[in-house]
């Protein structure tokens, strides 16, 4: 393959990976405090529709992005209320959230179907950086939300592993009892990061309706919320790996289409299967490593915490 073709595949991988990356980052925060939220798909859809409506009415895509985060946060707070305060089953609540979000987004979006967005996020080339060979067109000829995602990944990584607040957060997910005894409020922490996770999922959805395919179509996430959930495991709850994984997940389709164009016959079903095979492999490896070194899912993931049952 020639260089320009490789650059084109990689650039598409970045744009296609960005919505998944936002959602996965959010889910990393959520799962790091021990809450499993399977409502990502629903939150993304509601984020996509509210983002579109707000941007459509105000003409400002940034307000759209803000609205999508607000909507995602509200939806996630329902999940937090059910699972943290009322200690409901996290899987059931998350699934309900997805069903609810799918229906709600369809209902809200009805009047906006087939309407083009007057002012979507468009490509903004960064001076100097975009001149770099290969890396330039791949990473620095993108829209503002992509640049925002680079920043978020870096900040999240520093936050999770190198700050005290990040340590507290991880402690709540690993061993809420211990965190509680050290004076960290388990339920407050869990509420905060679950809602933060929802906000990022909403933003991921808005990336689709405000930047990638600027329009509202029902169910436009087409399962990307679930891919984000798989990606979190693939990334072993680490934002940096999530970035790599999101671009890999996103790049598979781009690569498949280019192969068709070049008339190389690799079955597209085989390619679309790859991310999940990788996820299963990672699951096997992390489970194995977890037994030896303690790297793996947060210890209290999916478990509700009750001080009296400690």
């Amino acid at each position: 393959m020639e260089a320009s073709l490789i650059a084109a595949v990689l650039a598409t991988a970045v744009t296609a990976g960005t919505p998944i990356l936002f959602a996965a980052l959010g889910e990393i925060f959520t799962e790091r405090v021990g809450i499993l939220n399977l409502g990502v798909e629903g939150m993304m859809l509601v984020g996509a529709v509210t983002g579109f409506i707000a941007a459509y009415i105000t003409g400002n895509p940034w307000l759209g992005a803000a609205a999508s985060m607000l909507a995602g946060g509200i939806l996630a707070s329902i999940h937090a209320l059910l699972t943290v305060t009322l200690k409901a089953n996290q899987v059931v609540s998350g699934l309900a959230l997805t069903i609810f979000g799918t229906g709600l987004s369809g209902y809200l979006g009805k009047p906006y179907i087939g309407q083009p967005l007057p002012n979507p996020f468009s490509v903004k080339e960064l001076p100097l950086l975009s001149e770099l060979p290969i890396i330039g067109p791949v990473l620095f000829k993108q829209d503002s939300l992509v640049y925002l995602s680079f920043l978020l990944v870096l900040l999240s990584w520093i936050f999770i592993f190198y700050t005290k607040a990040g340590l507290n957060m991880r402690a709540v997910g690993e061993n809420p009892g211990a965190a509680d005894s050290l004076g960290v409020s388990v339920s407050k922490t869990r509420y905060f990061y679950t809602i933060l996770g929802g906000m990022l999922a909403g933003l991921g959805g808005a990336y689709l309706s405000l930047a990638y395919a600027p329009a509202w179509m029902e169910n436009m996430t087409a399962g990307r919320g679930w891919i984000a959930v798989a990606l979190v495991i693939f990334a072993t709850w680490n934002p940096l790996y999530a970035l790599a994984g999101a671009y890999m997940f996103g790049g598979i389709d781009a690569l498949g289409f280019r192969m068709q164009v070049l008339d190389l016959h690799i079955p597209s079903y085989f390619l679309s299967m790859m991310p999940y095979i990788c996820t299963i492999l990672v699951l096997i490896i992390t489970t194995y490593r977890a037994q030896k070194k303690g790297v793996g899912a947060p210890g209290a993931l999916g478990l509700s915490y009750d001080r009296e049952e400690r």
Partner: peptide
């Protein structure tokens, strides 16, 4: 006329990617 199969009826992102690959070509 160059054809790309997407294996989906409904996925705005995938369909757009496929079109991009054709435009690049």
């Amino acid at each position: 006329v160059k054809v790309i199969w997407t294996n989906t009826w409904y996925d705005p992102v995938k369909e757009k990617d496929a079109a991009k690959a054709l435009l690049d070509d």
